[in-house]
């Protein structure tokens, strides 16, 4: 009773402080882990642009975490105006709860993914194990660090990238691809629960010869933690990761922020937005924007796996290929 009362009081206090006054607008962008630096940068630029255009002051708040966890928070009521996650599957999960209109992925160009990324290797300086491509990862004595695909969106891309590589080798099929992934997982000593956890294991604990990571994460780690300690190796082929963005209809309509939320996402597609994405080592979809990233042959999730729903079911749901591998391995 007493708690409830105090909780109500606090809620009231909380609401009054967060209620927008006049043309002060707040947006909440719920995102996944590796976009912190990107949005910290982009939010400032957008706020300045919006102020210049409309005179309104917009403050964008950020929440970051694992992609699946963030999707769950929105499903359970976290009031995100826009959501920018690692994979479409997670946004689909919100859409099935009726908070986002079906067909959201067609709302914005390019499958609602304003930037793309891929999976690359971070290795120790000088690349002592001579890791050049995916088939080097399954060699005996190579220790690979990747997070658990059951709990990390990034790890799912890693897993599918390896699978897609094996699938596209001469004579490749699903059985051979599974063989390949089994061999690869045998070289994994630790499965962290999130992408940043794995980076820390690789960098701070000194475990492993190679870290499978988002391209932007690999470069960020390289810059932040020591260009003298690591190298980024881009394999000849990999997977095209399309982290999608969308407006959460339920929240935007309720809070009356639809217009600014939509503009916010659209701004990601402008030259300005694309340049910021490129600066943070994402691959801009506008090919005119210069990028420092190496050319890679990229497979799409739709072509190689028949879309996220199917990939999730085949590989990561309970009893999927990932579980099969570990249940056999014992």
């Amino acid at each position: 009773m007493k708690t409830g009362f105090i909780a109500n009081l606090l809620t009231a206090a909380f609401l009054t402080t967060s209620l927008a006054q006049g043309a002060d607008i707040t947006l909440l962008n719920v995102s996944y882990d590796p976009t912190r630096e990107l949005y910290a940068d982009f939010n400032n630029v957008f706020a300045a642009y919006w102020k210049g255009k409309t005179g309104d002051k917009v403050t964008i708040r950020q929440s970051h975490g694992g992609s699946g966890k963030q999707a769950r928070a929105v499903i359970d009521g976290l009031e995100a105006d826009v959501i920018t996650l690692a994979l479409a599957y997670d946004i689909d999960a919100i859409a099935t709860k009726g908070q986002i209109k079906p067909g959201w992925q067609k709302e914005l160009p390019h499958n609602s993914a304003p930037y793309t990324s891929t999976i690359v290797f971070l290795v120790r300086k000088g690349n002592p194990k001579k890791i050049k491509n995916w088939d080097d990862l399954v060699k005996p004595g190579v220790s690979v660090i990747t997070p658990n695909p059951k709990t990390s969106g990034g790890a799912r891309w890693n897993y599918l990238a390896a699978w897609a590589f094996a699938l596209h080798q001469p004579g490749g099929n699903d059985a051979k691809a599974k063989e390949f992934v089994i061999k690869l997982l045998k070289n994994v000593p630790v499965l962290d629960s999130g992408a940043r956890g794995s980076t820390n294991t690789f960098v701070q604990r000194g475990l492993g010869d190679v870290l499978l990571a988002w391209e932007n994460e690999a470069f960020l780690a390289l810059n932040e933690l020591g260009p003298d300690k690591f190298d980024v190796v881009t394999p000849s082929e990999s997977i095209l990761a399309e982290p999608p963005v969308t407006v959460v209809d339920r929240v935007a309509d309720k809070r009356g922020t639809r217009k600014v939320a939509e503009e916010y996402l659209k701004y990601l597609y402008t030259d300005e937005g694309q340049k910021i994405a490129a600066k943070h080592y994402y691959r801009p979809i506008n090919t005119k924007i210069p990028t420092k990233l190496a050319k890679v042959k990229l497979y799409t999730i739709d072509k190689a796996f028949g879309g996220w729903q199917k990939a999730q079911k085949t590989h990561f749901a309970d009893g999927g290929t990932f579980d099969q591998i570990y249940d056999v391995k014992k």
């Binding site: 909780a7 809620t11 909380f14 928070a73 359970d76 009521g77 976290l78 009031e79 709860k97």
Partner: peptide, 25 residues
């Protein structure tokens, strides 16, 4: 939460419990 027992009611009355300070407490 929004999918929970009284989540929809709270939502309708604009009371935030989870993902806000009261939930943390």
């Amino acid at each position: 939460g929004l999918q929970g027992w009284i989540g929809p009611w709270l939502q309708a009355h604009d009371i935030k419990i989870v993902f806000a300070v009261p939930g943390i407490i």
